[in-house]
Computed example of a mutant assay.
Amino acid sequence: MKKLIYIAFSVFMLVGSVNVAQAAEGKEAKELTEQQQVKLNQITQRVEEIKKMDKASLSQAEKQDLKAELTTMKKEAKAISNGGIYLSLTALLVIIIILLIL
């Protein structure tokens, strides 16, 4: 049983480390075009407006719309900037489980 756990752990770690390695070596600081910078600034301003809103007075449907809008803006911002290091959730869970077992 322990062999199976260690093999599974190794596989999950290898799968997770591939994403981190690709993110670390393949990404250089990319210059944003003027249009991308404008779009990123618009997204930032809209997020700040939403943060300053009084959300207690909104209806449930309006809150859901705001949440959906924030989600799409977050995806757009990530697509524009292409930043960050990616580590798979599976690898993190396996690490935690192995630490608990040992």
Results as ranks from 00 to 15, higher is better:
residue 10 S to C: 10
residue 75 K to F: 08
residue 73 M to F: 12
residue 3 K to G: 04
residue 99 L to A: 09
residue 100 L to D: 00
residue 4 L to D: 13
residue 27 K to N: 02
residue 79 A to I: 01
residue 89 L to E: 10
residue 21 A to Q: 07
residue 36 Q to A: 09
residue 73 M to A: 13
residue 15 V to P: 01
residue 92 L to Y: 15
residue 50 I to E: 01
residue 68 A to N: 06
residue 67 K to D: 03
residue 10 S to H: 07
residue 9 F to M: 10
residue 55 K to V: 00
residue 85 I to H: 10
residue 32 L to A: 04
residue 32 L to R: 14
residue 55 K to P: 00
residue 72 T to N: 13
residue 12 F to D: 01
residue 39 K to P: 08
residue 23 A to M: 04
residue 83 G to Y: 02
residue 57 S to E: 14
residue 39 K to I: 02
residue 20 V to F: 12
residue 85 I to V: 08
residue 69 E to D: 05
residue 77 A to V: 07
residue 13 M to L: 11
residue 86 Y to Q: 02
residue 84 G to H: 04
residue 66 L to D: 04
residue 11 V to N: 05
residue 15 V to S: 06
residue 28 E to C: 07
residue 56 A to V: 06
residue 1 M to L: 11
residue 69 E to R: 14
residue 26 G to I: 00
residue 24 A to Q: 10
residue 16 G to Q: 13
residue 102 L to R: 14
residue 59 S to F: 04
residue 90 T to Y: 15
residue 93 L to Y: 05
residue 1 M to D: 05
residue 68 A to W: 08
residue 15 V to A: 10
residue 30 K to M: 07
residue 39 K to C: 05
residue 72 T to S: 14
residue 17 S to F: 11
residue 18 V to F: 11
residue 2 K to E: 12
residue 81 S to D: 06
residue 96 I to R: 08
residue 46 R to V: 09
residue 55 K to Y: 04
residue 66 L to H: 03
residue 36 Q to M: 11
residue 101 I to V: 07
residue 96 I to G: 00
residue 87 L to I: 04
residue 59 S to K: 03
residue 73 M to Y: 14
residue 52 K to D: 06
residue 62 E to D: 12
residue 101 I to M: 03
residue 81 S to R: 15
residue 28 E to V: 10
residue 79 A to T: 04
residue 64 Q to T: 02
residue 21 A to I: 02
residue 50 I to F: 09
residue 46 R to F: 09
residue 101 I to P: 00
residue 99 L to H: 06
residue 12 F to R: 14
residue 99 L to C: 04
residue 41 N to G: 04
residue 97 I to T: 06
residue 58 L to R: 12
residue 58 L to Y: 14
residue 44 T to F: 01
residue 88 S to I: 02
residue 82 N to G: 08
residue 64 Q to A: 10
residue 8 A to Q: 08
residue 64 Q to N: 12
residue 46 R to M: 08
residue 34 E to K: 15
residue 56 A to P: 02
residue 34 E to N: 13
residue 81 S to E: 11
residue 10 S to N: 00
residue 62 E to R: 06
residue 62 E to F: 04
residue 26 G to W: 00
residue 64 Q to V: 01
residue 49 E to M: 11
residue 58 L to P: 00
residue 3 K to T: 01
residue 20 V to W: 14
residue 5 I to K: 13
residue 45 Q to F: 04
residue 14 L to G: 13
residue 73 M to D: 12
residue 6 Y to G: 05
residue 68 A to S: 11
residue 60 Q to W: 10
residue 17 S to G: 11
residue 83 G to I: 00
residue 86 Y to L: 01
residue 21 A to E: 03
residue 85 I to P: 11
residue 24 A to H: 13
residue 68 A to R: 14
residue 57 S to T: 14
residue 27 K to M: 00
residue 53 M to A: 04
residue 93 L to W: 09
residue 69 E to G: 09
